[in-house]
């Protein structure tokens, strides 16, 4: 039946000859000249712009430092001329005063104690958040049941700012120190959980299927497929968590405690040591950035494959 639909071999009608021409080729000299040609040179304004916008690391760092220098200059002028447009600068210390205060603090002992206590709190609370957040996030990402039981708590507790936790934390925890640690811990916990869950859920299904057909069991799929697939997202959660840990810590330290950089900043206000307010603030900014950078650096070796992909 089907075979009938094939026509028997009929000789096709004579075809006109096929038309092919070879376009003229470039000479080897012409190709070599093209090879040796120089990239277009820019002149005047365009050349200046090209340097300013250059993507080289040196230029990028120059631009960053310039931005900071301009900011300090603006701050200096705003204080010097007592700028008073909506925000008042009459009570703001000048960059020079802040610098002098900073140098004075560096020469004392107590400032280091404040820094150390804050860093210690961050380290302890963050370690707890990581060691609870990642496993919990992994479980939630893999199990719908666990997710349904835990996610409502995450969603409801997450928007509560650290400051709002302070009264209850003080009532709940035996010492002031432990309540500060608890608040810091909570701040870091939620971003870590949520990013871990998202990372697990983004695991491409085809990779899980491939692993299964290669003979992998559940535990092996988890270790070789789900965990590495979630790592980029976990790394994001870890840096975001570090940032949130810092401002949760500061909220805790401002309300209570005897040491800590947040305490230092707040007492500077009470003791009318205005330059120290800014010294405290900038220390927080610097430590926060440095610790987030440290987290990024620590996760980098696990993400080498991603860097290679680009």
């Amino acid at each position: 039946m089907l075979a009938k639909t094939i026509e028997p071999g009929v000789t096709p009608p004579a075809q006109p000859p096929l038309q092919v021409v070879s376009p003229p080729r470039a000479t080897p000299e012409a190709i070599e000249a093209l090879q040796r040609s120089k990239p277009e040179k820019l002149h005047g304004w365009a050349a200046f712009l090209a340097v300013v916008a250059s993507p080289s690391p040196l230029m990028r760092w120059t631009r960053r430092l310039l931005a900071i220098a301009l900011g300090i200059l603006w701050w200096h002028l705003a204080v010097k001329y007592q700028l008073n447009v909506i925000v008042k600068f009459d009570n703001v210390s000048s960059p020079a005063e802040v610098w002098a205060s900073f140098v004075k603090q560096l020469n004392g002992k107590i400032f280091y104690r404040h820094l150390f206590v804050s860093l210690q709190r961050i380290a302890i609370a963050y370690c707890f958040a990581v060691s609870i957040g990642i496993p919990l996030g992994l479980l939630m990402g893999r199990s719908r049941i666990i997710n349904d039981f835990v996610m409502p708590y995450v969603e409801i507790l997450r928007p509560i700012p650290a400051v709002a936790w302070i009264p209850l934390a003080i009532l709940m925890w035996p010492t002031e120190e432990s309540s500060i640690l608890y608040i810091t811990f909570l701040g870091a916990l939620f971003p870590i959980i949520l990013n871990t869950v998202a990372g697990v859920q983004q695991t491409p299904e085809v990779l899980v299927r491939a692993a299964r057909s290669l003979g992998a069991r559940q535990g092996q799929i988890f270790r070789h497929v789900v965990l590495p697939a979630a790592l980029p997202s976990i790394a994001t959660g870890l840096s975001v968590g570090m940032g949130v840990a810092w401002f949760s810590l500061l909220a805790g330290e401002i309300i209570s405690g005897q040491y800590g950089i947040g305490y230092f900043t707040w007492t500077a206000y009470h003791l009318i040591k205005y330059p120290d307010i800014i010294v405290g603030m900038l220390s927080i900014g610097f430590l926060g950035t440095a610790s987030t950078f440290a987290v990024t650096l620590a996760t980098k070796p696990f993400l080498r494959w991603q860097a290679r992909a680009r």
Partner: peptide
């Protein structure tokens, strides 16, 4: 598989 299914890591 049709889609690229190698483990990228």
């Amino acid at each position: 598989f049709q889609q690229y299914s190698l483990f990228p890591w």
